[in-house]
Design a protein around this nucleic acid. Structure first.
Lengths: 156, 156
DNA sequence: CTCAATGCAAATCTTTTGCATGCTA
DNA sequence: TAGCATGCAAAAGATTTGCATTGAG
Protein backbone atom coordinates (compact mmCIF):
# COMPACT_ATOMS: atom_id res chain seq x y z
CA UNK A 1 0.00 0.00 0.00
CA UNK A 2 2.24 2.72 -1.25
CA UNK A 3 1.70 6.14 0.14
CA UNK A 4 0.66 5.31 3.67
CA UNK A 5 4.09 5.78 5.14
CA UNK A 6 4.88 9.00 3.39
CA UNK A 7 6.75 7.45 0.51
CA UNK A 8 5.99 6.81 -3.11
CA UNK A 9 4.78 8.71 -6.11
CA UNK A 10 1.14 8.60 -5.17
CA UNK A 11 1.72 10.12 -1.77
CA UNK A 12 3.84 12.89 -3.20
CA UNK A 13 1.34 13.46 -5.94
CA UNK A 14 -1.31 14.08 -3.36
CA UNK A 15 0.86 16.45 -1.40
CA UNK A 16 1.63 18.45 -4.50
CA UNK A 17 -1.95 18.65 -5.60
CA UNK A 18 -2.93 19.63 -2.11
CA UNK A 19 -0.63 22.61 -2.34
CA UNK A 20 -1.87 23.55 -5.78
CA UNK A 21 1.14 22.21 -7.62
CA UNK A 22 1.47 19.57 -10.31
CA UNK A 23 3.35 16.30 -10.22
CA UNK A 24 5.70 16.04 -13.17
CA UNK A 25 8.35 13.65 -14.37
CA UNK A 26 11.27 15.82 -13.20
CA UNK A 27 9.74 16.37 -9.78
CA UNK A 28 9.10 12.70 -9.30
CA UNK A 29 12.66 11.90 -10.36
CA UNK A 30 14.11 14.44 -7.96
CA UNK A 31 12.07 13.09 -5.07
CA UNK A 32 13.13 9.59 -6.02
CA UNK A 33 16.78 10.55 -5.89
CA UNK A 34 16.39 12.26 -2.53
CA UNK A 35 14.48 9.29 -1.16
CA UNK A 36 17.14 6.79 -2.09
CA UNK A 37 20.05 8.46 -0.35
CA UNK A 38 21.04 9.54 3.11
CA UNK A 39 23.75 11.78 1.73
CA UNK A 40 23.65 15.53 1.62
CA UNK A 41 23.28 16.26 -2.06
CA UNK A 42 24.05 19.49 -3.83
CA UNK A 43 21.87 20.69 -6.69
CA UNK A 44 24.56 19.47 -9.04
CA UNK A 45 24.55 16.04 -7.37
CA UNK A 46 20.80 15.79 -7.79
CA UNK A 47 21.11 16.94 -11.36
CA UNK A 48 23.64 14.27 -12.23
CA UNK A 49 21.64 11.54 -10.58
CA UNK A 50 18.43 12.58 -12.31
CA UNK A 51 20.28 13.07 -15.55
CA UNK A 52 21.23 9.38 -15.69
CA UNK A 53 17.57 8.45 -16.04
CA UNK A 54 16.11 11.54 -17.64
CA UNK A 55 18.82 13.14 -19.71
CA UNK A 56 16.53 15.93 -20.81
CA UNK A 57 15.92 17.42 -17.38
CA UNK A 58 17.79 20.67 -16.91
CA UNK A 59 19.71 22.01 -13.95
CA UNK A 60 17.34 24.94 -13.73
CA UNK A 61 14.47 22.63 -12.99
CA UNK A 62 16.52 21.00 -10.25
CA UNK A 63 17.05 24.35 -8.59
CA UNK A 64 13.44 25.39 -9.00
CA UNK A 65 12.12 22.12 -7.69
CA UNK A 66 14.45 21.99 -4.71
CA UNK A 67 13.45 25.49 -3.76
CA UNK A 68 9.81 24.51 -4.04
CA UNK A 69 10.35 21.45 -1.87
CA UNK A 70 12.10 23.58 0.73
CA UNK A 71 9.22 26.03 0.70
CA UNK A 72 6.76 23.15 1.10
CA UNK A 73 8.77 21.83 4.01
CA UNK A 74 9.65 18.49 2.41
CA UNK A 75 13.30 19.25 2.07
CA UNK A 76 15.88 20.93 4.28
CA UNK A 77 18.56 23.13 2.79
CA UNK A 78 21.94 23.24 4.51
CA UNK A 79 25.12 25.23 4.21
CA UNK A 80 28.20 23.29 5.22
CA UNK A 81 30.57 26.04 4.22
CA UNK A 82 31.82 24.71 0.91
CA UNK A 83 30.06 27.27 -1.22
CA UNK A 84 27.18 25.15 -2.40
CA UNK A 85 23.85 24.39 -0.78
CA UNK A 86 23.02 20.83 0.29
CA UNK A 87 19.61 19.24 0.40
CA UNK A 88 18.00 16.39 2.32
CA UNK A 89 14.50 15.09 2.62
CA UNK A 90 12.98 16.31 5.90
CA UNK A 91 11.94 13.70 8.44
CA UNK A 92 8.29 14.65 8.10
CA UNK A 93 7.98 13.33 4.60
CA UNK A 94 9.55 9.92 5.02
CA UNK A 95 10.89 7.55 7.61
CA UNK A 96 13.91 9.79 8.03
CA UNK A 97 15.07 10.12 11.61
CA UNK A 98 15.59 13.65 12.85
CA UNK A 99 19.28 14.35 13.13
CA UNK A 100 21.91 17.03 13.28
CA UNK A 101 25.35 17.34 11.74
CA UNK A 102 28.99 17.23 12.67
CA UNK A 103 30.98 19.16 10.09
CA UNK A 104 34.71 18.64 9.72
CA UNK A 105 36.36 22.01 9.24
CA UNK A 106 39.33 20.37 7.58
CA UNK A 107 37.95 17.95 5.00
CA UNK A 108 34.32 19.17 4.93
CA UNK A 109 33.04 15.69 5.74
CA UNK A 110 29.59 15.72 7.30
CA UNK A 111 28.49 13.14 9.83
CA UNK A 112 24.87 12.73 10.84
CA UNK A 113 24.09 12.01 14.43
CA UNK A 114 20.88 11.13 16.16
CA UNK A 115 22.39 10.80 19.62
CA UNK A 116 21.32 13.29 22.24
CA UNK A 117 18.48 14.36 20.01
CA UNK A 118 16.00 13.64 22.77
CA UNK A 119 17.86 15.67 25.34
CA UNK A 120 18.29 18.43 22.83
CA UNK A 121 14.63 18.31 21.96
CA UNK A 122 13.60 19.08 25.49
CA UNK A 123 15.92 22.03 25.77
CA UNK A 124 14.96 23.27 22.35
CA UNK A 125 11.31 23.12 23.24
CA UNK A 126 11.81 25.24 26.31
CA UNK A 127 14.11 27.62 24.52
CA UNK A 128 11.74 28.00 21.63
CA UNK A 129 8.89 28.69 23.98
CA UNK A 130 10.85 31.31 25.86
CA UNK A 131 12.19 32.98 22.76
CA UNK A 132 8.81 33.01 21.09
CA UNK A 133 7.34 34.89 23.99
CA UNK A 134 10.24 37.24 24.68
CA UNK A 135 10.94 38.24 21.11
CA UNK A 136 7.44 37.68 19.76
CA UNK A 137 9.01 35.42 17.20
CA UNK A 138 7.17 32.42 15.77
CA UNK A 139 9.75 29.64 15.57
CA UNK A 140 9.18 27.00 12.94
CA UNK A 141 12.54 25.33 12.67
CA UNK A 142 16.03 25.14 14.08
CA UNK A 143 19.52 24.37 12.94
CA UNK A 144 22.21 22.79 15.07
CA UNK A 145 25.65 21.95 13.78
CA UNK A 146 28.90 21.11 15.49
CA UNK A 147 32.22 21.96 13.89
CA UNK A 148 35.61 20.42 14.47
CA UNK A 149 37.96 17.75 13.25
CA UNK A 150 36.80 14.31 12.21
CA UNK A 151 38.69 11.19 13.20
CA UNK A 152 40.60 11.09 9.94
CA UNK A 153 41.74 14.69 10.24
CA UNK A 154 42.51 14.98 13.95
CA UNK A 155 45.46 12.66 14.07
CA UNK A 156 48.67 14.63 13.79
CA UNK B 1 46.17 50.15 29.36
CA UNK B 2 44.88 49.22 25.94
CA UNK B 3 45.07 45.58 25.01
CA UNK B 4 44.37 43.98 28.35
CA UNK B 5 40.73 43.39 27.62
CA UNK B 6 41.21 42.03 24.17
CA UNK B 7 40.59 45.24 22.32
CA UNK B 8 42.75 47.76 20.58
CA UNK B 9 45.39 47.82 17.88
CA UNK B 10 48.21 46.75 20.14
CA UNK B 11 46.42 43.66 21.31
CA UNK B 12 45.54 42.66 17.76
CA UNK B 13 49.01 43.41 16.62
CA UNK B 14 50.36 40.95 19.16
CA UNK B 15 47.89 38.28 18.17
CA UNK B 16 48.85 38.65 14.53
CA UNK B 17 52.55 38.56 15.22
CA UNK B 18 52.04 35.57 17.43
CA UNK B 19 50.51 33.70 14.52
CA UNK B 20 53.24 34.78 12.15
CA UNK B 21 51.16 37.39 10.38
CA UNK B 22 51.67 41.12 9.97
CA UNK B 23 49.50 43.96 11.14
CA UNK B 24 48.65 46.26 8.29
CA UNK B 25 46.48 49.29 7.73
CA UNK B 26 43.69 47.37 6.00
CA UNK B 27 43.65 44.69 8.70
CA UNK B 28 43.47 47.22 11.46
CA UNK B 29 40.69 49.07 9.67
CA UNK B 30 38.69 45.88 9.20
CA UNK B 31 39.05 44.94 12.85
CA UNK B 32 38.04 48.43 13.82
CA UNK B 33 34.87 48.21 11.77
CA UNK B 34 33.99 44.83 13.23
CA UNK B 35 34.68 46.08 16.75
CA UNK B 36 32.36 49.03 16.44
CA UNK B 37 29.24 47.20 15.40
CA UNK B 38 26.99 44.48 16.71
CA UNK B 39 25.51 43.93 13.28
CA UNK B 40 26.15 40.99 11.01
CA UNK B 41 28.21 42.50 8.24
CA UNK B 42 28.74 41.07 4.79
CA UNK B 43 32.09 41.42 3.08
CA UNK B 44 30.58 44.21 1.03
CA UNK B 45 29.38 45.95 4.19
CA UNK B 46 32.85 45.80 5.67
CA UNK B 47 34.30 47.01 2.40
CA UNK B 48 32.06 50.05 2.29
CA UNK B 49 32.75 50.94 5.90
CA UNK B 50 36.50 50.59 5.47
CA UNK B 51 36.35 52.42 2.18
CA UNK B 52 35.05 55.57 3.83
CA UNK B 53 38.31 55.92 5.72
CA UNK B 54 40.76 54.16 3.43
CA UNK B 55 39.48 54.51 -0.09
CA UNK B 56 42.37 52.56 -1.51
CA UNK B 57 41.62 49.26 0.22
CA UNK B 58 40.18 46.72 -2.19
CA UNK B 59 37.36 44.25 -1.77
CA UNK B 60 39.77 41.39 -2.33
CA UNK B 61 41.68 42.34 0.78
CA UNK B 62 38.45 42.37 2.74
CA UNK B 63 37.71 38.82 1.66
CA UNK B 64 41.23 37.64 2.33
CA UNK B 65 41.39 39.27 5.72
CA UNK B 66 38.00 38.02 6.83
CA UNK B 67 38.95 34.51 5.85
CA UNK B 68 42.17 34.87 7.80
CA UNK B 69 40.31 36.13 10.85
CA UNK B 70 37.93 33.21 10.65
CA UNK B 71 40.84 30.82 10.41
CA UNK B 72 42.45 32.45 13.43
CA UNK B 73 39.20 32.14 15.35
CA UNK B 74 38.67 35.88 15.84
CA UNK B 75 35.68 36.07 13.59
CA UNK B 76 32.64 33.87 13.01
CA UNK B 77 31.20 33.43 9.57
CA UNK B 78 27.47 32.88 9.20
CA UNK B 79 25.05 31.98 6.48
CA UNK B 80 21.61 33.43 6.97
CA UNK B 81 20.32 32.21 3.67
CA UNK B 82 20.46 35.39 1.64
CA UNK B 83 23.32 34.30 -0.56
CA UNK B 84 26.09 36.24 1.12
CA UNK B 85 28.24 35.35 4.10
CA UNK B 86 28.03 37.43 7.27
CA UNK B 87 30.79 38.08 9.74
CA UNK B 88 31.00 38.95 13.44
CA UNK B 89 33.81 39.24 15.89
CA UNK B 90 33.88 36.15 18.08
CA UNK B 91 33.34 36.60 21.79
CA UNK B 92 36.84 35.46 22.60
CA UNK B 93 38.47 38.48 21.10
CA UNK B 94 36.42 41.21 22.73
CA UNK B 95 33.77 41.80 25.32
CA UNK B 96 31.20 40.30 22.99
CA UNK B 97 28.64 38.16 24.74
CA UNK B 98 28.13 34.71 23.30
CA UNK B 99 24.83 34.58 21.49
CA UNK B 100 22.80 32.76 18.90
CA UNK B 101 20.45 33.93 16.19
CA UNK B 102 16.80 34.05 15.32
CA UNK B 103 16.43 34.31 11.56
CA UNK B 104 13.20 35.51 10.00
CA UNK B 105 12.42 33.35 7.00
CA UNK B 106 10.26 36.07 5.53
CA UNK B 107 12.25 39.30 5.76
CA UNK B 108 15.68 37.82 6.57
CA UNK B 109 16.00 39.92 9.69
CA UNK B 110 18.38 38.46 12.23
CA UNK B 111 17.89 38.89 15.98
CA UNK B 112 20.62 38.07 18.44
CA UNK B 113 19.64 36.45 21.69
CA UNK B 114 21.62 35.67 24.77
CA UNK B 115 18.72 34.16 26.71
CA UNK B 116 18.91 30.49 27.56
CA UNK B 117 22.54 30.51 26.62
CA UNK B 118 23.46 29.12 30.00
CA UNK B 119 21.00 26.28 29.81
CA UNK B 120 22.11 25.58 26.29
CA UNK B 121 25.72 25.65 27.32
CA UNK B 122 25.25 22.83 29.77
CA UNK B 123 23.49 20.64 27.28
CA UNK B 124 25.98 21.49 24.57
CA UNK B 125 28.83 20.57 26.84
CA UNK B 126 27.40 17.15 27.52
CA UNK B 127 26.46 16.63 23.92
CA UNK B 128 29.86 17.66 22.71
CA UNK B 129 31.49 15.33 25.17
CA UNK B 130 29.33 12.42 24.09
CA UNK B 131 29.71 13.10 20.41
CA UNK B 132 33.45 13.55 20.70
CA UNK B 133 33.78 10.14 22.23
CA UNK B 134 31.28 8.27 20.11
CA UNK B 135 32.34 9.65 16.76
CA UNK B 136 35.95 10.38 17.67
CA UNK B 137 35.31 13.90 16.55
CA UNK B 138 37.09 16.87 18.10
CA UNK B 139 34.47 19.56 18.46
CA UNK B 140 35.71 23.13 18.43
CA UNK B 141 32.58 25.10 17.76
CA UNK B 142 28.85 24.95 17.33
CA UNK B 143 26.13 26.74 15.46
CA UNK B 144 22.57 27.18 16.66
CA UNK B 145 19.95 29.12 14.79
CA UNK B 146 16.20 29.31 15.03
CA UNK B 147 14.07 30.07 12.00
CA UNK B 148 10.60 31.47 11.84
CA UNK B 149 8.63 34.68 11.54
CA UNK B 150 9.64 37.84 13.35
CA UNK B 151 7.07 40.06 15.04
CA UNK B 152 6.74 42.31 12.03
CA UNK B 153 6.15 39.43 9.64
CA UNK B 154 3.88 37.18 11.71
CA UNK B 155 0.86 39.44 11.93
CA UNK B 156 -1.65 38.87 9.20
C1' DC C 1 66.34 43.58 2.43
C1' DT C 2 62.74 39.79 2.33
C1' DC C 3 58.70 38.00 1.76
C1' DA C 4 54.00 38.55 3.31
C1' DA C 5 50.19 41.51 1.92
C1' DT C 6 47.78 44.26 -1.44
C1' DG C 7 45.24 46.04 -5.53
C1' DC C 8 43.45 45.39 -9.84
C1' DA C 9 41.38 42.81 -13.36
C1' DA C 10 39.89 38.68 -14.88
C1' DA C 11 38.17 34.23 -13.89
C1' DT C 12 35.17 30.92 -11.45
C1' DC C 13 31.21 29.01 -9.91
C1' DT C 14 26.72 28.73 -8.03
C1' DT C 15 22.21 30.23 -8.50
C1' DT C 16 18.65 33.10 -10.86
C1' DT C 17 15.94 35.03 -14.68
C1' DG C 18 13.62 35.81 -19.37
C1' DC C 19 11.06 33.77 -22.64
C1' DA C 20 9.14 30.62 -25.91
C1' DT C 21 7.39 25.90 -25.70
C1' DG C 22 5.57 21.67 -23.52
C1' DC C 23 2.61 19.09 -20.67
C1' DT C 24 -0.52 18.18 -16.43
C1' DA C 25 -5.02 18.15 -14.82
C1' DT D 1 -7.83 24.15 -23.19
C1' DA D 2 -5.57 26.97 -19.45
C1' DG D 3 -1.82 27.96 -17.13
C1' DC D 4 1.78 25.81 -14.45
C1' DA D 5 6.28 23.75 -15.47
C1' DT D 6 10.35 23.24 -18.28
C1' DG D 7 14.63 23.95 -21.03
C1' DC D 8 17.91 26.77 -22.87
C1' DA D 9 20.82 30.57 -22.87
C1' DA D 10 22.14 34.48 -20.74
C1' DA D 11 22.58 37.18 -16.53
C1' DA D 12 23.59 38.02 -11.97
C1' DG D 13 26.34 37.89 -7.96
C1' DA D 14 29.53 36.44 -4.59
C1' DT D 15 34.00 34.87 -3.99
C1' DT D 16 38.62 33.49 -5.73
C1' DT D 17 42.90 33.73 -8.35
C1' DG D 18 47.07 35.49 -11.10
C1' DC D 19 50.47 38.66 -11.04
C1' DA D 20 53.11 42.73 -10.54
C1' DT D 21 53.82 46.04 -6.80
C1' DT D 22 53.98 47.68 -2.07
C1' DG D 23 55.31 47.87 2.59
C1' DA D 24 55.92 45.66 7.48
C1' DG D 25 59.42 43.97 10.33
Amino acid sequence: MPGRDGTGPLWWHGRFRGCGYRMTVPREAILDVLSRTSKHLSAEDVYMAVHKIHANVGLTTIYRTLELLVKMGFVYKFDFGDGRARYELSEGSKGVRHHHHLVCTNCSRVIDYTDFIDEEAELLNQTEKGLSKKHNFEITNHLIQFYGLCDRCKKG
